[in-house]
Design a protein around this nucleic acid. Structure first.
Ligand SMILES: [Mn+2]
Ligand SMILES: [Mn+2]
Ligand SMILES: [Mn+2]
Ligand SMILES: [Mn+2]
Lengths: 219, 219
DNA sequence: TTTTATTTTTAGCCATGTCTAAATTAATAT
DNA sequence: ATATTAATTTAGACATGGCTAAAAATAAAA
């Protein structure tokens, strides 16, 4: 079985390599697991020996088949626990990540499958991220970031690509949550900020940084 | 904060010293945390430095005030998770201990208090053990072990003082669970076994070992 | 193409928690 | 009271995962 630390590294590599099609650099991993680059080199050498990752000196790491499977199961556990915390225990969405970060390491297939069932087999977590099923399969939504929309277009929030507490709290204060409907009223050229109508009620201005982290579906 | 290992040691010392009023021996602790006596000596010396236990060479360990508080909170977490696993996820009572053994180490007061609330503030776990509240207080039931009852007396099962999988499965096969009502039909002198009527329906014979591990309340 | 800056690796060190074997102390038996 | 047995502690070692500082390799700039 894997240690706590090994699991965190696998998950970091998974997330880093998820979108871009290149290997995860030592520094990037260090940033994710919050340690020094030297420690990362140590660990990825060990993970390479265990054949959980592919690693070439100075060229970063990518997950092996096995490593990918393990990382996917971790993601599954993490996101299911987040659903539990939000749906059942009524935690606000900005508080669940850190707790799920610990819960994800609990090792019991029976537990996670019963939990999945108890939660009604949810397919997305409280931040709109897809939840892999027991076989590791999950759906990718066709979505775009809000800053790509044009004036006049309407959309619904389906996810956020940033999970920091301040960012999510900012959305709370704007009464923006998953499912919220928007209409683009205006886009300012010089700072790329956007004027938005929220749920056909109030109007808010979003910085480009915010708009760029909102994942939306056109309607 | 405490490490995983430190927490397990505190819990072991708590359980060992819970009933008897003497200190926990090195060997007994080793048995509980499943390591060597040498490792225990190492660890209890460290715990003593941190003032979580009182320790005198060759004389075993007892919890300090602080250590006792921490151990009690661990017990609280362990038992609440067990309730969650049984009540919500429908695990059989013999499967919950090992999982709770991991879950108890998750560190979040908010989590455990919300969980407590979600479960309806249960006061006993699936094995009939009392659950300390957030302040560490818990009720002690007046109970006796079944082997103390006399022929003709009636009682209800309120707890089990052994949590091993085979023991609990044996009870399952006898259709005995918390709340089951009994009537003592006969006590055999030579092997101390007991003939019992279960829920006014079927009759079973219990060995002394079994009867001695059943905690009952007279009715 | 050199020089400079950045990234990555190596080397040496430390803390935690474990182990086995040997030494010491306490408890039991003769 | 002494000898034997059992419990406990010490000593020395190892694996894991982290650190800092220095060396080496790669990338970027001049
Ligand atoms: Mn984690
Ligand atoms: Mn999430
Ligand atoms: Mn434990
Ligand atoms: Mn229990």
């Amino acid at each position: 079985m894997l240690t706590h630390a090994e699991e965190n590294y696998l998950k970091a590599i998974f997330k880093i390599t998820e979108r871009q099609n290149k290997s995860a650099s030592t520094n990037k991993i260090a940033e994710y697991v919050n340690t020094s680059a030297a420690s990362v080199t140590d660990m990825i050498q060990k993970l390479a020996v265990k054949e959980l990752i592919h690693y070439e000196k100075y060229k970063g790491a990518t997950l092996s088949e096995v490593g990918n499977k393990l990382a996917t199961q971790l993601i599954r556990k993490h996101r299911l626990w987040e659903v539990f915390l939000c749906d059942k225990l009524k935690f606000p969405w900005e508080e669940v990540h850190d707790i799920a970060e610990e819960l994800e390491h609990i090792n019991s297939a029976a537990l996670i499958n019963r939990l999945d069932n108890f939660l009604g087999n949810p397919r997305f977590d409280p931040h709109g991220d897809p939840i892999p099923n027991a076989e590791g399969k999950f759906m990718l939504r066709n979505q775009s970031t809000m800053d790509n929309l044009q004036v006049g277009q309407k959309c619904v929030l389906v996810g956020v690509s940033q999970h920091s507490v301040p960012f999510l709290q900012h959305l709370n204060s704007l009464k923006i949550k998953l499912g919220t409907a928007f209409k683009i009223l205006d886009k300012l050229d010089f700072d790329k900020s956007m004027k938005i109508e929220v749920d056909s009620v109030n109007q808010v201005t979003l910085s480009h940084t915010v708009a760029n982290n909102l994942l939306v579906k056109l309607i």
